Simulated assay, not measured.
Amino acid sequence: MKSKYIFALLVSFLSIMTVQSQLKAIAYADGNQKLEGFSGKPMKANAKKAGVLILPAWMGVDAHAKESALELSKLGYFTFVADIYGIDKRPANSQEAGKIAGHFKTNYKEYQHRIQLALEQLIKSGANPKEIAVIGYCFGGSGTLETARANMPVKGVVSFHGGLGKDASRSVETIHPKVLVLHGADDFFVPDTEIKAFQDEMRAAKADWQMVYYADAVHAFTHKDAGSDKSKGVAYNEKADKRSWKAMLDFFDEIFN
């Protein structure tokens, strides 16, 4: 019995290592700023060689973003986890993360440029440049909307519990990529005024957009390390996590067909 258990553990370990080996660290740069993203190549690519760019949450490249890249690669997608901050700009805590993320939210052109550089790396890895989607979590979710606002050459963007706002002084342009926002119904970090402004923006931009609310879910509902205390405004919700992942895959079926 014990030997069977050990064998099962060994098989599980080897399976994990095989999947992880599909992610490769990629060095690239923005001028003098060194960046390091992670590229995932599918064992068997889908027919269109579609690619998905993953924008991490405010702590930068993290295990959650890498896990998403691996899971999507297993489904046949080329993937790339973007490095928005830089190798030597990794925040040590939430206070530092808030400061760095705030800089990019304010200086949105810089954020858009870093996203564009990551898109180029995704395409270099083998993804079809005409079949690209961008997904992001929290701060990365905000980045997906900046991708859409900049009308980068992608078919669609998916924001998981991301910020929705932008400076009201910015002009509203027609948005061509399709937009899917997956939102915690109890996320008090995104006030109703921001939600309304976002929806008004989407209408004014004549965007093809969807917004899905998940009951009992707050900010970071897809992050398993976020704990379970909703009162803090950040907590994992297994049901919302699974439902939002399925919503994303259904969205992919639409935009890539």
Score class of each variant (00 low, 15 high):
Met1Gln: 13
Ser3Glu: 14
Tyr5Pro: 05
Leu10Ser: 05
Ser12Glu: 09
Ser12Thr: 15
Leu14Asp: 05
Met17Trp: 05
Thr18Ala: 14
Val19Cys: 02
Leu23Phe: 00
Lys24His: 04
Ala25Asp: 08
Ala27Arg: 10
Asn32Gln: 14
Gly37Ser: 04
Phe38Thr: 00
Lys41Ala: 02
Met43Leu: 15
Ala45Ile: 06
Asn46Ile: 06
Val52Phe: 07
Leu53Tyr: 08
Leu53Met: 09
Leu55Ile: 03
Ala57Val: 08
Gly60Phe: 05
Ala63Pro: 10
Ala65Gln: 07
Lys66Gly: 03
Leu70Cys: 05
Leu72Val: 03
Ser73Arg: 00
Gly76Cys: 14
Tyr77Ser: 02
Phe78Trp: 03
Thr79Tyr: 00
Tyr85Trp: 02
Tyr85Asp: 03
Lys89Arg: 13
Lys89Pro: 04
Ala92Pro: 03
Ser94Arg: 10
Gln95Met: 13
Gly102Ile: 11
Asn107Ser: 12
Glu110Tyr: 11
Glu110Pro: 06
Leu117Ile: 13
Leu117Ala: 09
Ala118Leu: 11
Ala118Lys: 09
Ser125Met: 03
Tyr137Leu: 10
Phe139Cys: 07
Gly140Tyr: 06
Gly143Met: 03
Glu146Ile: 09
Gly156Trp: 08
Gly156Cys: 02
Gly165Asn: 14
Ala168Pro: 06
Arg170Thr: 11
Ser171Trp: 07
His176Gln: 08
His176Ile: 08
Pro177Phe: 00
Lys178Tyr: 04
Ala185Met: 10
Phe198Tyr: 06
Arg203Asp: 10
Arg203Val: 05
Lys206Asn: 11
Val218Phe: 05
His219Tyr: 02
Ala220Tyr: 06
Asp225Leu: 10
Ser228Met: 08
Ser228Glu: 10
Asp229Lys: 11
Ser231Glu: 13
Ala235Ile: 09
Ala240Met: 11
Ser244Arg: 10
Trp245Gln: 00
Ala247Glu: 06
Ala247Leu: 06
Asp250Thr: 14
Phe251Ala: 03
Phe252Val: 02
Glu254Cys: 02
Phe256Leu: 15
